[in-house]
Design a protein around this nucleic acid. Sequence first.
DNA 1: TTACTTAGTGTCAAAAGAACACTAAGTAAA
DNA 2: TTTACTTAGTGTTCTTTTGACACTAAGTAA
Lengths: 232, 232
Amino acid sequence: MSATYLHPRPALTVDCVIFGLNTGLDELWVLLVERGQKPFKGRWAIPGGFVRVGESLETAARRELDEETGLRDVFLEQLYTFGEPDRDPREHVVSVTYYALVNLDDYELEAGTDAKKAAWFPVKRREKELAFDHRRILDVALARLRGKLSYQPVGFELLPRKFTLSQLQRLYEIILEQPVDKRNFRKKVLAMGILRDLGEVQENVRHRAAKLYAFDEKAYRQKEKAGFHFEL
Amino acid sequence: MSATYLHPRPALTVDCVIFGLNTGLDELWVLLVERGQKPFKGRWAIPGGFVRVGESLETAARRELDEETGLRDVFLEQLYTFGEPDRDPREHVVSVTYYALVNLDDYELEAGTDAKKAAWFPVKRREKELAFDHRRILDVALARLRGKLSYQPVGFELLPRKFTLSQLQRLYEIILEQPVDKRNFRKKVLAMGILRDLGEVQENVRHRAAKLYAFDEKAYRQKEKAGFHFEL
DNA sequence: TTACTTAGTGTCAAAAGAACACTAAGTAAA
DNA sequence: TTTACTTAGTGTTCTTTTGACACTAAGTAA
């Protein structure tokens, strides 16, 4: 299994920042796993692991995601590659990072199949004592998410397939941390024409039930080709 | 010099897409080097090379840039990391790519100090026969550049330090491939308050000399902190 | 029946964006 | 020295977009 090379190489890992929103829609969460070995044993870290030879980076990221948290088929996008030689005390380890967006309810309490402890942390808590440079990675991921949210339709990945306009609005308010005008928001979103009115309403709510919508990806792709640019 | 590891590792390289604009301001150019060895011997490629252990990714990128093209102290930003296992026929090579922006005149004809052939190619020519997946990388870089141009003040990196508003406008027209209204453009740019009027005018032009401006980075940074967002 | 909660809707004023054409200043050539 | 040529530089108007703002509708629970 060991390998010898003419020149030394840095080790290569993938790490995934996983953002989640619960249906209560009160906060943005990030999924962390507790490290079982040194270094940083007992510290919380974003899930990840070594890239295998012959495996693409995204494949590696999805494999690690599955192994460490049980998550599959989620939205996943490359974030940034960190390669400071001292970011891992053992040796030079370069990490290609990804960020994932999931709806918490679809996966709630999926404790690591890998016997590792996994838990959701509120992003706002800004947990300081993360392993390696993971605090930094999380900050970069959050900045990216905030940026993307405004000009790419990624927010829907954090909601259940069927959602109300109020839920979508709250998502934007929570992540961007600024209030949004209800009427203006609804006008703008609906005017884009990328939501499908499902003709259904919420159930089991103790107030007027809101209409349910779904993101219409086909419509979005078509409009995009025609020069349309998402913006919220 | 050789090294043995418990598990096999992909090789790790950095590659740099270098965009340049000449003062003639007629086209966007990309700097390519001719490969001297297999694989893809004789093909044009974007400059790059292996990351050394103990060296940060950006350091590696700047080192390779200097070695292969003589460029130093240029604007450089990470682009994307490509890791498909078959992108290099020899073995699994993961490439962290960067893109650089330079003013062609500052460096014109800096043929490789490394005895390698280097040449500027018009981006629009969309040279097909590049080594490895470099065609793809170039496409990603161009898309990124186009995106950045609109909401980050990176265009100035392609101009000489002192430039005219017409030059700046032409830059946007060339890269975004769409005409811009002169009066509206000037109003918008000047209204941002991030250009310093140098109180100088062009020399050696056979028509009315235009005023020279410089990007005022300090002003930009301050405004940015105060919530200002660049947009053109 | 009443109280409570969230859903859903339109108008107006301000700001930003888009369209548009001429004069000014300099050089070069007749 | 006049004329032609080239690029610099400038305002106004109309249209579109954005932002501020408050009430009624529909349902549940007490």
